[in-house]
Simulated assay, not measured.
Amino acid sequence: MKKQLKVVVTGGPGGGKTTALDLFRRELCDQLAIVPEAATVLFSGGITRSSNEPVLKNVQKAIFSLQQNLEDIQKNKYPNRLLVCDRGTLDGLAYWPGTEENFFQEVNSNFENEIVRYDAVIFFESAAASGHDISSNNPVRNETSKQAAELDQKLQDIWSRHPHYYFVGSSESFVRKIMFGIMTIENVINRHNKENGN
């Protein structure tokens, strides 16, 4: 059976990731299925943010599990489409209040298992990294520009360990970011087809 391709679109708050995903959906239509962001699903459903460490850990464990299940739902619902994930299971590591080792103990996994879930990573750098405004109409986002830049760096450190990591800098125009993202998805599909002799 042909392996289903799975790509993560991630990055710090204010990187244009959500807008990019909307445009990917329109551009590639019936070729892909979007896996929604687990944190947004959770926070939109009535869970409120907290700075309490035990609560933070519970929230990240719930997001991790929900992310896996959302990926499985879309995988089974659209077996012949490319899965494009709005963030991945490793994003929680940037928000975790403890060590990396502690994170993987708590979610009962390891870095290697999670990184191989995805065939490629497209990282949209936060506008905050280059000192730009990141205000948005997303009601579940509450990071300051400083926090967004710090999160962006943490996320870069995590995801750049993927062998197929594509970085889209914040200095790029937004149109170029989107074009690069679509080109990257097409390259991933072409590489996959080549490796599988299609």
Rank of each mutant, 00 (worst) to 15 (best):
S160E: 14
E195V: 09
A127K: 00
I73E: 00
I158D: 09
V59T: 13
L83V: 10
S65I: 13
V188G: 02
T89H: 04
E112I: 00
N138T: 07
I73K: 01
I122F: 00
K194G: 09
F180S: 07
I115N: 06
I73W: 00
E195L: 12
Y95W: 00
E100Q: 15
N108C: 04
E172S: 05
V168I: 15
K154Y: 12
K61R: 13
N193C: 10
A120P: 02
N196G: 03
Y118W: 04
S171C: 11
N137V: 03
I134E: 03
K57S: 02
V55K: 10
N69W: 08
Q156T: 12
S171E: 14
V175G: 08
P54A: 07
R191A: 11
Q67R: 02
D152K: 11
Q68E: 13
D133I: 04
F111H: 01
E150W: 10
R87E: 00
G197W: 13
N113E: 10
A129P: 04
Q147K: 14
N52S: 12
R87G: 01
D152C: 15
A62R: 13
T89D: 07
D133K: 02
L82S: 05
E172F: 04
L56F: 05
R81T: 15
F123H: 01
N142Y: 12
K75M: 09
A128S: 02
Q67I: 01
L93Q: 05
T184N: 10
R191M: 11
R87V: 00
K146Q: 14
I115G: 07
G92C: 04
N102D: 15
Q67H: 01
R81P: 08
H162N: 03
R141A: 14
D119M: 08
G92T: 03
R87N: 03
G131E: 00
S173W: 05
Q60C: 07
P139C: 13
Q68M: 12
E100A: 15
S171A: 12
N69A: 11
E125P: 06
S136E: 14
I134S: 04
V84N: 01
Q105K: 14
G197L: 13
E71N: 06
L151V: 11
D86L: 03
K177L: 05
F64A: 10
K77N: 02
S130D: 04
I178Q: 09
T144M: 13
E53Y: 08
H164M: 04
H162D: 04
Q105S: 14
L90M: 11
I122E: 04
F167E: 08
A129I: 06
P97G: 00
K194I: 14
E143S: 08
S136Y: 10
A62F: 09
Q74Y: 08
F124S: 12
P97T: 02
S170W: 11
K154N: 13
I73Y: 01
M179E: 14
L93H: 05
K194P: 09
N69I: 11
T89R: 03
I182R: 05
N142F: 11
L66P: 06
E125L: 06
E112K: 02
P139F: 14
M183K: 08
F104W: 12
Y165N: 10
W96N: 01
D133Y: 06
T89C: 06
E125N: 06
V188E: 03
F111G: 00
E172G: 00
L90V: 07
T89Q: 06
P97D: 00
N193W: 12
N69F: 07
F124L: 15
V84T: 03
Q156V: 14
Y118Q: 03
Q68H: 13
I134W: 03
V59C: 12
N69Y: 08
